[in-house]
């Protein structure tokens, strides 16, 4: 049984049992910290095993994600204009740490770098140098992409420390109001002009979401 986020794809693939959910990509069972909604989605999907007798029917979940609505009370982290990402990361540290303590976990870690080292790596690349740090089995270009993923995850968690912002609020802040967002967008343009095919591909596809390009 499938939970699907793109109805068109469900219609094309025609899985035996499918529940289409009207949520944003990345949230197949709905809102964070909303166990009732998550249970409802999962139960409705699993119920298809018990109730559906014909293949290819797409059932639609009829509730929206309440966290898609902006939180008017949310205030983005207060950060002074920073000269580089290392300084911006340091400014966000109290927010990030508060969120980590509150959740007892962090989604930062794919690069396996300390966040200060990820910031330093980003700053050298933003200053015009080519990606240079590697790890066994990981090229310098991929290492840079992973460091960017960790920095974005760090900023997201810092933004979540106060209030319940929608994803749109967080990403608008990250991409438009932080030095990191602005510099990744600039790097994207530089990478897309690179003669290095892999770097060009990272610039084209793996730096900035469609909406904020």
């Amino acid at each position: 049984m499938v939970i699907g986020l793109v109805k068109l794809h469900l219609e094309k693939i025609q899985p035996p049992r499918a529940l289409f959910v009207p949520f944003e990509f990345g949230r197949p069972v709905g809102a964070p910290d909303d166990s009732d909604l998550q249970l409802e989605v999962l139960t409705q999907a699993l119920n298809l095993i018990e109730t559906q007798t014909e293949a290819g029917t797409i059932v639609e979940f009829d509730k929206e994600d309440p966290r898609a609505t902006p939180d008017p009370e949310w205030i983005p982290p207060a950060i002074e204009a920073a000269d580089n990402i290392a300084a911006e990361v340091l400014a966000l540290k109290p927010n990030y740490q508060r969120q980590c303590v509150d959740k007892s976990r962090t989604a930062v870690g794919v690069s396996k770098l300390k966040i200060a080292d990820a910031a330093d790596l980003f700053d050298t690349i933003a200053a015009g140098e080519a990606p240079s740090i590697t790890r066994e089995g990981i090229s310098a270009n991929v290492m840079m992409r992973l460091a960017m993923d960790d920095l974005k995850a760090y900023y997201i968690e810092a933004a979540l420390a106060d209030g319940t912002p929608s994803s749109r609020q967080i990403y608008d802040w990250l991409w438009d109001d932080t030095l990191l967002g602005r510099q990744i967008k600039e790097l994207r343009v530089r990478f897309m002009e690179s003669n290095d095919n892999k770097l060009e591909k990272i610039g084209t596809s793996y730096c900035v979401p469609h909406r904020w390009r």
């Binding site: 944003e24 949230r27 809102a31 964070p32 997201i156 994803s167 793996y206």
Partner: peptide
């Protein structure tokens, strides 16, 4: 590898993506 799906839900609650 994709940057085109929400990561904020997972950051707040992993169940959003993997329940």
């Amino acid at each position: 590898v994709s940057v085109n799906f929400d990561r904020t839900g997972f950051a707040e609650d992993a169940n959003t993506l993997f329940p």
